[in-house]
Simulated assay, not measured.
Amino acid sequence: MPRFPYLRLAVVVLSLACVPSLAAATIPVYGYKIVREFPHDPGAFTEGLFYEDGFLYESTGELGASTVRKVRLDTGEVVQQVDTPTGYFGEGIITSGTKLVQLTWQDGVAFVYDKATMKLAGGFRYPGEGWALTRDATHIYMSDGTPTIRVLDPASFQRTGSIDVTANGKPVRQVNELEWVKGEIYANIWQTERIARIDPKTGHVVGWIDLAGLLDVSKLDNPVDDVLNGIAYDAAHDRLFVTGKHWPKVFEIRLVPKR
């Protein structure tokens, strides 16, 4: 999400209030072990991330700086990039066949690019805000900052259903960057250091991943804004990657039980 310095305190308070069950003993909490660190462009205001065929695909935000990128994981080198059309704030990204789909924040417009050339190939409209995208073999999942994840048809991009995200019966708001991992939807909860593990059949949070201390954001230029946001999964090698907005690193992590 973008910068609102005059709302920072309110946003933090609201975000924490919207995750009422973080301390609930009935939901397992996982910690992490860093497996490996990779370089990441600190100029990238990461909004969407996924891994495919040896590369990270990344969507960056901020007006005038939004892009879609193909990035070499080991070096952080941007091997291909296209600017988001002028005047739009880029958000989540996912692949759909030979296309890349990028959401925008408040304009209700998604852009569709040819994956091979990254040339703009079309688009579609949707109501409300666009935050993040992920997919499984048959569906695309879209977050909009509310507790409801939209389910889209990957061919028509039309909405076919929804998932209401809850933790111990309470709605979970600020659902942001998404990733499909082993039959679950992993979701960054914006302005927190937590990732929710969501059962897509019920919407229930079945686990929390606590990434506190992964990066000292106090050393970044805008620690309130430059938060954890970016999840990618390499299914072939069972590798989980996470990063954040303007973070200088991508971390490969392994989950470990916390309690």
Rank of each mutant, 00 (worst) to 15 (best):
F4T: 08
W190R: 04
L240V: 02
D210P: 09
L103E: 05
Y57C: 05
R3F: 09
V35M: 10
T134E: 04
Q106C: 01
V224S: 08
G123T: 10
H246F: 12
A24F: 06
K115Q: 12
F4H: 14
A110I: 13
V205D: 02
D216R: 08
K115E: 07
A235S: 15
Q81L: 15
A24K: 06
Y141A: 13
K33N: 02
L215Q: 09
E193L: 05
G244L: 08
A17N: 09
V175P: 00
T46Y: 10
N176M: 05
S66M: 14
D221K: 15
E177T: 04
R8C: 05
G43E: 15
E62I: 13
W105K: 04
T104D: 04
P200N: 03
V112T: 08
D225L: 10
F124S: 05
N176R: 03
A65Y: 15
V19I: 12
S21T: 10
P154I: 15
T84I: 15
T148P: 00
F45C: 07
T86W: 14
L152F: 09
A137V: 06
H237G: 00
E62G: 03
G145S: 09
L220F: 06
V82F: 09
Y186M: 03
D199R: 06
L16A: 06
Y113A: 01
P154S: 12
V112H: 04
Q174L: 11
P127H: 07
T84P: 00
G145M: 06
S21W: 04
T75I: 03
A132G: 15
T134N: 04
K182P: 00
T75K: 07
V206I: 09
D221Q: 15
R239D: 01
Y32S: 03
V35H: 04
E91R: 08
V78D: 00
L255W: 13
E91W: 13
A187L: 10
